[in-house]
Design a binder for these strands. Sequence first.
DNA 1: CATAATACGGAATAAGGAATCCGGATTCCG
DNA 2: CGGAATCCGGATTCCTTATTCCGTATTATG
Lengths: 187, 187
Amino acid sequence: MSTPPARRRTRTDAERNRDRVLDAARALFAASGHDVQMSEVARAAGVGVGTLYRKFPTREALIEAVAEHRAVEIVATARRLTGAGDPADGLARFLHHMGEVLADDRGMSEVVEKAMGSSEPREETREALLAIAAELIDRARASGAVRQEVTTEDVNMVICGLAAVIRNAAGDWRRYIEVALDGLRSR
Amino acid sequence: MSTPPARRRTRTDAERNRDRVLDAARALFAASGHDVQMSEVARAAGVGVGTLYRKFPTREALIEAVAEHRAVEIVATARRLTGAGDPADGLARFLHHMGEVLADDRGMSEVVEKAMGSSEPREETREALLAIAAELIDRARASGAVRQEVTTEDVNMVICGLAAVIRNAAGDWRRYIEVALDGLRSR
DNA sequence: CATAATACGGAATAAGGAATCCGGATTCCG
DNA sequence: CGGAATCCGGATTCCTTATTCCGTATTATG
């Protein structure tokens, strides 16, 4: 009989480093998008690349982890919007919130543009985001604030466009949202 | 006194090769966007990379040349739209035409998304595209088909979004256009 | 503390691709 | 035709970056 492995607790410095990496990545991705070098992230985190890779075995994994974080925040806000307040402008508020987030996070705008687009297999959180958005849309439609024939897909396209507009600094994204909402609204 | 250089005519094969490269690039960029390797373009053109690079000294140059071509076509169509027909739906037709083009040319959708966005120094043709679009918008506004306060920038954002929607296969882009137009239209 | 178990840093490696170079064709001109 | 004058092909050079490796340094336990 072999004695059970009896794992040690994960080292505190390891944990600390993981947080540092995540923080650094968040900041860099937000500021410059995802085309940042791993070594740059490591440097910003005050850590060696080796360490970075032990925490996140792949560039993709890091991006994913960071995006996940933001997605959770967005979902939380969205839920708040579905819970309280006039269902008629829940959708409007959601779009504006989305805009605020994306405007401050280039990396996220890249992710959202793709996420709202492709119908690829999405992972949990992103799925949740889509779901909550769908609920907001349903409510808006039910309340008559939005036309009957508006679909979830319609709004997803609007969001995809919003992400692009913001990412390219195409103009005042709040106006974009207004136009889109007017297009969705009942006449 | 030295005799003047007396240039020869450019070789016919050289000219032919240039066309081949351009054609191949057009096809590849349209099908897969701009992340195609130079060697791939060369192969498709039935030419060595060396030749490709003599015609277009840089990847950027090639992309630019190809985009230029399409942009000219679009401008031509746009002019036709400003010339004849109900000024009220010239804008609508323009957007739909844009959609058709972008849907068949991924590379172009990438270019357009950026072009309608950043206010970077644009080169001639792209400038012309913006100008003609602006004219279409002015007419639509003048005819009352579009709200008074709609700006060129508003429409540019819509186009930027359109490009993103198409590039990401986010859904039925025709619906996106309808929503946007409804948002711009007078109530 | 002693020691095993973990984690660290960052040089080295691996790959992918753009751009260059040059010996060998082709084409033009008289 | 007979040389230039031009152009070709594609192996090769250069760079940029992600990812791996391993000798050291740190930390958790008893």
